[in-house]
Design a protein around this nucleic acid. Structure first.
Length: 460
DNA sequence: GATTATGATTCCCC
DNA sequence: GGGGAATCATAATC
């Protein structure tokens, strides 16, 4: 038997009491001011103290000495007090029992007595529970909350999710259209998850609220017949909330899982290989072949290329890595392509020089046409030209008109040696180049050296 | 459907 | 950390 039951029993057992207090001088004074004899208080105190230590049977015996336990019908009405808590079903209570109860409920000292009993209860039973109540915030819930917030599932409608998707899309590379399609797809699915999450959350909160209200009403109702303090009701509410928050945590967990699955699918989709568009490949090739002696773009050059091609810097790095390897492995295959780009860049340079010459102004090779790189007119192109000018290189028929144009242009401008003297190209750049030494058949003089060790693309 | 091209990843080295 | 090399995975081509 718990203390609560005992006290409830004790309360009914105090049918004849007129007043009482335990340990609260204010209450005592209050009772005294009502004109009750002090002797009564002492009796009540003694009886209450005795109740806390006595058994239910004793209390029952004292309360209903003339009643058989068989008559404890109990009632569905919670207002009928602690005895109803025994769960006893049955017929009506004896008249004198009801009378006693009524007398008890209407007794003018009942509030004071309840106050005392609540206090005792507070000090005994509930104080034990109270120790466990001040739980720190669960780190797991905090993590889940943070994640849901970051993913844009919880928190404001616009924000995290879009940002996360945008970041992922940015990292995805590929064409802007593709990434925006994926982005919108991701957002749509995330919005779906968000909607489900909030809908479920609302349901839980509603259920929690309803249940809490129900329990509070019940306890308030029962507090008419047994000692239930407001504080105890608060505690009960807190317990209910804790239970519901654990359910919420499960909801958050499953939502996080859903988001992770969505994210991984989205990332997998990003991993799907997509060829760069033609323009991007052209830009990259142009750079590669115009820097054939040293196809190692600097960070700045990579950034510029990435910007131009609409891809990421790491994709540029990948592309150059692949290109270098594949070029090395099969130079013959790339020969025509190399020639094509060499001619292309040379023609561009020649055109610029011709324009400059026509304008009767000093040649400014570095002010190339928009879209071409400043490095397009450097010694690498010069190397290509020398090869084209007859070092046993086979020129594809399709390239011949461009070569002819180039020859005319070089003649017009006085050749690329002039360009190389512009400071953009220095002959010693051809040295210390292991890249061309082993790979490029155009190579003229290329003592070994670490790639990029001497001539990084600083002119860019 | 086989082959080729190509972007990405991984491992290793410096 | 950057680059080389091998490899994977997939798009493009025939």
């Amino acid at each position: 038997m718990d203390d609560q039951t005992r006290m409830m029993t004790g309360l009914t057992g105090l049918g004849g009491l007129t007043q009482g207090d335990v340990g609260d001088p204010d209450s005592v004074r209050k009772q005294q001011s009502l004109g009750q004899p002090q002797q009564d208080i002492g009796d009540i105190l003694q009886q209450i103290m005795a109740i806390t230590d006595e058994s239910l049977d004793e209390a029952q015996a004292r309360c209903w000495p003339e009643e058989s336990p068989a008559h404890w019908g109990g009632s569905d009405d919670p207002t009928e007090g602690g005895r109803a808590g025994g769960g006893m079903a049955g017929g009506g209570l004896p008249l004198n029992f009801q009378h006693r109860k009524h007398a008890l409920n209407c007794h003018r000292m009942k509030p004071a007595l309840f106050s005392v009993l609540c206090e005792i209860k507070e000090k005994t039973v509930l104080s034990i529970r109270g120790v466990q109540e001040e739980d720190p915030p669960d780190p797991q819930i905090m993590r889940l909350d943070n994640m849901l917030l970051a993913e844009g599932v919880s928190g404001p409608e616009k924000g995290g999710g879009s940002a996360a998707a945008a970041a992922a899309a940015a990292a995805a590379g590929g064409s802007p259209t593709d990434s925006s399609i994926e982005h919108s797809d991701y957002r749509a699915k995330l919005a779906q998850i968000r909607q489900i999450y909030h809908s479920e959350l609302e349901k839980y909160e509603q259920a929690c609220s309803e249940f809490t209200n129900h329990v509070m009403n019940l306890l308030r109702e029962q507090s008419r017949t047994r000692p239930i303090s407001p504080k105890e009701i608060e505690r009960m509410v807190a317990i209910i909330h804790r239970k519901f928050s654990s359910i919420q945590m499960q909801l958050k967990q499953s939502t996080c899982e859903a988001v992770m699955i969505l994210r991984s699918r989205f990332l997998d989709a990003r991993r799907k290989r997509r060829n760069f568009n033609k323009q991007a490949t052209e830009v990259l090739n142009e750079y590669f072949y115009s820097h054939l002696s040293n196809p190692y773009p600097s960070e700045e050059a990579k950034e510029e290329l990435a910007k131009k091609c609409g891809i990421t810097v790491s994709q540029v790095s990948n592309w150059f890595g692949n290109k270098r390897i594949r070029y090395k492995k099969n130079i013959g295959k790339f020969q025509e392509e190399a020639n094509l780009y060499a001619v292309k860049t040379a023609v561009d340079a020649a055109n610029v020089s011709a324009q400059a010459s026509q304008a009767n102004s000093p040649a400014t090779p570095n002010s190339g046409s928009p879209g071409s790189y400043s490095l397009a007119h450097t010694g690498d192109t010069y190397l290509g030209l020398r090869s084209l000018n007859g070092e046993g290189l086979t020129i594809a028929p399709s390239l011949q008109p461009q070569v002819d144009t180039l020859h005319r242009a070089t003649h017009l401008t006085g050749g690329y040696e002039e360009l190389s003297g512009s400071g953009l190209y220095t002959p010693h750049r051809l040295d210390a180049n292991s890249w061309q030494d082993t790979t490029n058949p155009h190579s003229v003089t290329s003592p070994p050296g670490p790639p990029g060790s001497v001539h990084s693309d600083t002119s860019n």
